[in-house]
Every structure is written in structure tokens, then in C-alpha cells.
Design a binder for these strands. Structure first.
Length: 207
DNA sequence: CGTCTTTGACCGGCGC
DNA sequence: GCGCCGGTCAAAGACG
């Protein structure tokens, strides 16, 4: 029961820095192209590992996986989730200077619940040229903006499920403060407003 | 024409 | 040491 919330936040980055993709590929010097499409060489400094980016998990009751949060996301991967018939989608902010990533997966217990995990913070304002939601503008670069947008986009009637989620959050003391005032002073953990949107702390509680 | 989604393959880390 | 899993990339295709 509560596992749906805890496991959603118990994740951690795995394969991060990948080295040369095509390094293992044979040299293409003056050779036929009969072989299958091989991966091109992609020099990437492996030492560039991000220390730790803040992560936030949101359990939203929505029918669509892709939640409009005011930013433009590009889907770069999809993987099947174990113990869950629903796949997990990986999105990345289309802004070049913004490395915010988002993982979207449905709860295996409640298909109506979409678990959205944000990793990192937007270094820019939400683009005003949002397709279908140009009226949405984030007041600040912090998550407060998108948080408010979520409230606007997912403001629905309370449901028993919401109570369940809220109760689940109570099980984890850390979940009570998903938004530290030091980081998101404009978005207090006011669960009263979050009716269908129940944020869960995703911060690495391992240390 | 530009942008985005889809899909397969690959890599790194971790567990056993 | 090997195998498994999760995460990411890149190319092609589809769509507006």
C-alpha cells in the first residue's frame, strides 16, 4: 500500500556517464557500408558526474502520462518497469541549458495515478510558446511556478484515492516536507491545496 | 520544414 | 566473474 509511494522515491541514478558509444565499433576508414547502422563516436567526458540534483516525485491523478507543467519536454526513452505492467517514460527539458529530467510512470496499483519524478531544477523560465498552453507562465525559475501550474491543471474534486495518497505520505515523515523553505520558499508544502497532486520527497535520504 | 515520438541497442552499476 | 537492471543515446519515422 504505502510501498507505492516509498518505492517511487527510492530510486537512484544508475547508468549516468557513458563513454564512447562507437569506440568499440570498428574503424569506418574506407569500408563498405554493408554492416548494420553502428553507433557513431560520441566523446563524452566521463568525469563529469553531477554531484546530486534535487529530485521530486509527484503522484498525480491524471489520465495522460505527459503532464503539462509549463515546460517543453522531449521524450528520450521508455523502459518497462518491473512489477508493473506500465512502462516508464523518460523526458528531458528541450532547453539546451536546462538539464532537467523527468520520469513518468504509472502506479501499478492505481493506473489513474501518474508518478512524475523531476530531477534538477529549471535554469530558465517556462517558455511562453507552449503548444496548447501558451497562457501558462511560471512566475519564477523555481519549482513554485510549475507547482502552481499543476494545481491549476489538476485541480479536481477530492477522491478517496487522494486520501489514500495523503495517508501514504504520513507514513513517511520525510514526505511531510517535500519542499524545504530554503529551496522553495514560494511553494510551501500546503497539502491543503494539493488535492489531487500529492508531492513526495525524492531527495536522496540515503545520507 | 521543423519538431517530436518511437524503438533498439548499449553502457555502468550493483548484486549474487 | 557473471548476470541483471536501470538509464541513456541515436536514427528513423510520423505528424502538424
Amino acid at each position: 500500500m504505502s510501498s507505492s509511494s516509498t518505492e517511487a522515491v527510492g530510486d537512484e541514478d544508475s547508468g549516468r556517464s557513458r563513454k564512447y558509444l562507437g569506440e568499440i565499433a570498428k574503424a569506418d576508414d574506407g569500408d563498405d557500408g554493408t554492416e548494420k547502422p553502428k553507433k557513431p563516436i560520441k566523446p563524452r567526458k566521463k568525469g563529469e558526474k553531477r554531484p546530486r540534483e534535487p529530485r521530486f516525485a509527484f503522484m498525480t491523478k491524471s489520465e495522460v502520462d505527459h503532464l503539462e507543467d509549463g515546460y517543453r519536454w522531449r521524450k528520450y526513452g521508455q523502459k518497462a518497469v518491473k512489477n508493473s505492467p506500465y512502462p516508464r517514460s523518460y523526458y528531458r527539458c528541450t532547453t539546451p541549458k536546462c538539464s532537467v529530467k523527468k520520469r513518468v510512470e504509472r502506479s501499478h496499483q492505481d493506473p489513474s495515478i501518474v508518478i512524475t519524478t523531476y530531477e534538477g531544477q529549471h535554469t530558465h523560465h517556462s517558455p511562453a510558446t507552449i503548444r496548447g498552453s501558451s497562457h501558462v507562465l511560471a512566475p519564477s525559475t523555481s519549482m513554485a511556478g510549475f507547482c502552481s501550474e499543476l494545481l491549476l491543471h489538476h485541480r479536481r474534486l477530492p477522491s478517496p484515492l487522494d486520501v489514500q495518497l495523503r495517508e501514504a505520505s504520513r507514513l513517511s515523515p520525510q514526505s511531510l516536507s517535500p519542499f524545504p523553505a530554503t529551496q522553495y520558499p514560494q511553494c510551501p508544502p500546503d497539502y491543503g491545496l494539493l488535492q489531487d497532486v500529492v508531492p513526495f520527497v525524492v531527495h536522496h535520504a540515503k545520507q
